[in-house]
Amino acid sequence: DYFTVDMEKGAKGFGFSIRGGREYKMDLYVLRLAEDGPAIRNGRMRVGDQIIEINGESTRDMTHARAIELIKSGGRRVRLLLKR
Rank of each mutant, 00 (worst) to 15 (best):
D1R: 10
D1E: 07
D1C: 02
Y2Q: 04
Y2S: 11
F3A: 03
T4V: 08
T4D: 02
T4R: 07
T4M: 04
T4A: 04
V5F: 02
V5R: 01
M7V: 11
M7E: 04
E8K: 14
E8G: 05
E8M: 03
K9N: 05
K9D: 12
K9T: 15
K9M: 11
K9Y: 04
G10P: 07
G10S: 11
A11T: 04
A11Y: 08
A11M: 05
K12F: 06
K12L: 06
K12G: 12
K12V: 08
G13Y: 02
G13Q: 04
G13A: 04
G13R: 03
F14E: 03
F14Y: 14
F14C: 06
G15Y: 00
G15H: 01
G15L: 01
G15N: 03
F16H: 02
F16V: 03
F16A: 01
F16L: 06
S17G: 08
I18V: 12
I18H: 01
I18R: 00
G20Y: 07
G21P: 01
E23P: 06
E23A: 03
E23H: 03
Y24Q: 15
K25N: 14
K25L: 09
K25F: 09
K25R: 08
K25A: 12
K25V: 07
M26L: 14
D27L: 06
D27H: 05
D27P: 12
L28Y: 02
L28K: 01
Y29V: 12
Y29C: 11
Y29I: 15
V30K: 00
V30D: 00
V30E: 00
L31R: 13
L31G: 13
L31K: 10
L31N: 12
L31S: 14
L31P: 04
L31Q: 15
L31T: 13
R32D: 14
R32C: 14
L33H: 03
L33F: 08
A34F: 11
A34D: 14
E35L: 12
E35P: 14
E35T: 09
E35V: 07
E35R: 09
E35W: 06
D36C: 07
G37C: 10
G37I: 09
G37Q: 09
G37P: 05
P38E: 12
P38G: 08
P38C: 08
P38D: 14
A39W: 05
A39L: 05
A39C: 05
A39E: 08
I40F: 08
I40S: 14
I40A: 14
I40G: 14
I40E: 13
I40V: 12
I40P: 07
R41G: 12
R41L: 09
R41P: 06
R41K: 11
R41V: 11
N42K: 07
N42V: 08
N42P: 06
G43P: 11
R44Y: 15
M45P: 03
M45I: 11
R46I: 10
R46V: 08
R46T: 10
R46A: 10
R46H: 15
V47Y: 05
V47Q: 08
V47P: 09
V47T: 09
G48Y: 04
G48N: 11
G48E: 07
G48K: 04
G48F: 04
D49H: 03
D49A: 02
D49L: 02
D49M: 03
Q50G: 07
Q50K: 13
I51E: 00
I51H: 00
I51V: 11
I51P: 00
I52G: 04
I52V: 12
I52C: 14
I52Y: 10
I52H: 10
E53V: 07
E53L: 06
E53I: 04
I54N: 00
I54R: 00
N55M: 04
N55V: 01
N55S: 03
G56R: 06
G56V: 00
G56Q: 08
E57M: 09
E57N: 11
E57A: 11
S58G: 10
S58K: 10
S58F: 12
S58E: 12
T59G: 04
T59F: 01
T59P: 01
R60S: 13
R60C: 10
D61M: 07
M62W: 03
M62F: 09
M62E: 04
M62A: 07
T63H: 05
T63S: 11
T63G: 06
R66E: 13
R66S: 08
R66V: 06
R66M: 07
R66N: 11
A67E: 00
I68F: 04
I68T: 13
E69Y: 07
E69A: 10
L70D: 04
L70W: 05
L70H: 13
I71F: 13
K72G: 13
S73N: 13
S73Q: 11
G74K: 11
G74N: 08
G75S: 09
G75I: 05
R76Y: 10
R77E: 09
V78M: 08
R79L: 03
R79V: 10
L80A: 02
L80I: 08
L80W: 00
L80Q: 01
L82N: 02
L82A: 04
K83W: 14
K83D: 09
K83P: 01
K83E: 15
R84C: 07
R84Y: 03
R84K: 10
